[in-house]
Design a protein around this nucleic acid. Sequence first.
RNA 1: CGGGGCGUAGCGUAGCUCGGCAGCGCACUCCCUUGGGGUGGGAGAGGUCGUGGGUUCAAAUCCCACCGCCCCGACCA
Length: 567
Amino acid sequence: MKLSKYLLPTLKEVPSEADTVAARLMLRAGMIRKVASGLYEWLPFGLRALKKVERIIREEMDRIGGQEVWLPTLQPKELWEESGRWPVYGKEMMRVKDRKDGEFCLAPTAEEVVTDLVRREVRSYRELPLLLYQFGEKFRDEIRPRFGVMRAREFYMKDAYSFHADESSLDKTYDDCYAAYGRIFERCGLKFRPVEADTGAIGGKSSHEFMVLAETGEETIAACEGCGYAANIERADAPPPTAPTDGHQHDELKEVDTPGVGAVEAVAKLLKLPAEKFLKTLIYVADGKPVVAVLRGDTELNEPKLQRALAAKQLFKASEEIYRQVAGCEPGFAGPAGLNAAIVADHAVADVVNAVSGANKTDKHLVNINVGRDWRPARYADIRMIRPGDKCPRCGKAVAFFKGIEVGHVFKLGTKYSSAMNAGFLTEKGEKSPFLMGCYGIGVSRVLAAAIEQCHDDNGIIWPAGIAPFQVVVLPLNVSEPKVVEAAEKIYEGLKAKGVEVLLDDRDQRAGVKFKDADLLGLPWRVTVGERKLAEGKVEIKARAAGGGEDVPIEKAVDVLLNRIKL
RNA sequence: CGGGGCGUAGCGUAGCUCGGCAGCGCACUCCCUUGGGGUGGGAGAGGUCGUGGGUUCAAAUCCCACCGCCCCGACCA
């Protein structure tokens, strides 16, 4: 490809919208342009890289027996009603109507359509297992799109779905996908880490996320360097509480005035007591019923855990109105004593002796409240967030937090969708049984952004060879010098003839401009053709990732590069 | 949805406080110059100043409404 004819508009200045390194570089390197919030155009250079990632994924999915399909992006409401997700998915799902007022959504994911396909076409256990995958646009109406294509409203995704007759078959495919994902991200040049994940709204049994470690990551991972345990903090088990913080003597319950002071930190300051002595009382609504969560004052609620503990389909914070109905006071003054609602208490609460809590009276708190004597939870559960320095739930060493970008996710769905949608097969015994399912996603556009986030320097992108849009850029430094042009074109044509993807910067630009753009575009290999070295019959070959070039005779340049590229 | 900020040429911005010819840098077109890290000079083209309304002799500038975008938070794969 000749750069003079290629739609590759590089930018010297950074558009103000760029909020991460990757977004800045993708815009500057002419890979993408923004059309509206969370919506992007992919230009030729960017799309080439995206297709490289796609190709790697396709190869690895095919390798484990995946079969590529193409499912509709526009999906009928009826299927989503069958699975029960039409009302549950919420505002994040883009919904549209056709001319007959029929309702559809723009696919945020494809469990429903693929389950529908398989229930119609597969009858027998003999046809299982089945691993289907596709590439396509997904739509999610994010509250706040950001970080360029990292969190966009329309994005490019590989999604795969597997169907099984039994658990061991599901386990095998899950493990195959897990391994394939490792190979995919490896080939994309990413430093990544698989972590245990919450199963979230999609629902299901076990689940792992593939995280690219990056400062700008939106996910937080709790990881133990001791035993290798790593989990999304939404999922990470909190360690069991240690010992009671002081004696077992239960002192007399007292009511104290705390006018206008509701928050734990503020009351702690007022009463000169540490936050560990407090009971934090939170009121939620789970599937329409109010529930109360009680935590130790220095810990935070983990909503997904509470939702799991309650087995609730929907969970949200109680409105102030409901709060008043349940607690009988203004928000901030609720406490577990005398509440008329089911209480779920975090394990850590059990050990707090002579605690402080809200009194369920506005501007009042209770001192020396004790579980068992003054209140009783309906049950204990792990509902708090893990904290940095907490003990690893596996080995007991301290865990640390890391930021990560989720690039892939594997789930064991079980029969969640097949049961809801009556999708099943006949077993050996001739009995009908719902499919066991797994699903496996990779954010293709996000992988690319994550790779750039990880592979760059001050001057631009440094492409991992596997996903570089081209392998080589040839720079004739002075196009008004025929000898330079001739030598550059010879190398360019020579590489093309060998099937190497090569870009020729034939623009009438100064050397400095070409060097700057070459660094920005970040292709793995650069061939510089200038008068100075040409006089000795040589050109310079330089790797983008390494400093210092190597001078080679013109006639050997193609062969030398072919060798280097193989490495 | 709450809080904050911004909207002026393709990109980056000045001007707005205190109303009075819409400017600058980069990019773009043409000419000359230069030719190994964003040359130097000259000439040019490009604007509903986000949209609508109001105040005024006069609005990019002041007022109101709306739209869009960005940041923080809440929310969420």
